[in-house]
């Protein structure tokens, strides 16, 4: 891509991209820390994670202010306008990802006193790992303007949904086996749901990268794998 004739315009775009990348990095760390706090039952890490969500919110506001100023000053069109609009949408997804991760950290605080049977965390760990990989790839696709990579992320979200289904079943089974598990499992279920939602926001980011690169809005139906809303399990009576 050629440079703008007005050099300061390019500098503004660079700054916008730098802030977005910084937000992305913070969102990744927040998710990793939130899960670590949950798995290790570490209230200090959980509290620090909750506090660090504020930096993401602050960055989002900074991006928003700069983007509005750029629109007013430069009256961007074509790929420049797409660039600014996608950054606005992507940072709003990153802000939501931060919120959802913070929510996981809050649950880590709530369950920090309870004993976790180890296998209970396996499903959630897999989900977190997949969500982390998705987020990393989506952010890489953004920084390298890689439509192919964004498309891969978009297709892989169904895998995270499928994992969520199995975690959902698994946690329900634990609850049915022993009612003393219900408190903990409910928190973990919400945690799993939050990770699944993080996957959806990551897919939004991938869609926005595709729009940024190709200039065509993604209209294909997303591959969906989350069936938990229609899942029914009855407790065994025997």
């Amino acid at each position: 891509m050629n440079d703008h004739i007005v050099k300061s315009y390019d500098a503004e775009f660079k700054e916008l991209d730098r802030l977005t990348a910084h937000m992305g990095g913070l969102a990744e760390k927040l998710l990793a820390d939130a899960f670590a706090a949950l798995e290790r039952r570490d209230p200090n890490l959980a509290a620090a994670t909750i506090a660090s969500d504020k930096s993401i919110d602050t960055l989002e506001l900074q991006v928003q202010e700069r983007a509005i100023l750029m629109i007013a000053k430069r009256q961007p069109i074509a790929n420049d306008l797409r660039h600014i609009m996608t950054v606005l949408k992507i940072t709003s997804d990153l802000e939501r990802i931060g919120d959802l991760a913070k929510n996981i950290a809050k649950r880590a605080l709530a369950v920090s006193g309870e004993a976790h049977p180890k296998p209970l965390m396996n499903g959630l760990r897999h989900m977190t790992e997949l969500a982390m990989r998705q987020l990393k790839d989506a952010l890489d696709a953004l920084s390298s303007r890689d439509a192919g990579k964004a498309r891969e992320v978009w297709h892989r979200d169904a895998g995270l949904d499928a994992l969520y289904n199995s975690v959902f079943r698994e946690l329900l089974t634990y609850m049915m086996e022993d009612p003393r598990n219900i408190g903990l499992c409910t928190h973990l279920l919400f945690g799993a749901k939050n990770i699944e939602r993080i996957g959806d926001h990551t897919t939004n980011i991938a869609e926005n990268v595709l729009y940024l690169v190709d200039g065509v809005a993604m209209t294909e139906e997303r591959p969906k794998g989350d069936d938990t809303s229609s899942m029914v399990m009855s407790a065994r009576t025997s």
């Binding site: 050629n2 004739i5 007005v6 074509a78 420049d80 200039g215 065509v216």
Partner: peptide, 19 residues
């Protein structure tokens, strides 16, 4: 033309880039 120009020269001109 103003959202997704096909030609690089058009894009450079309307977005104020050096062609």
């Amino acid at each position: 033309i103003f959202s997704t120009p096909r030609d690089q020269r058009t894009q450079d001109y309307i977005t104020g880039r050096t062609g």
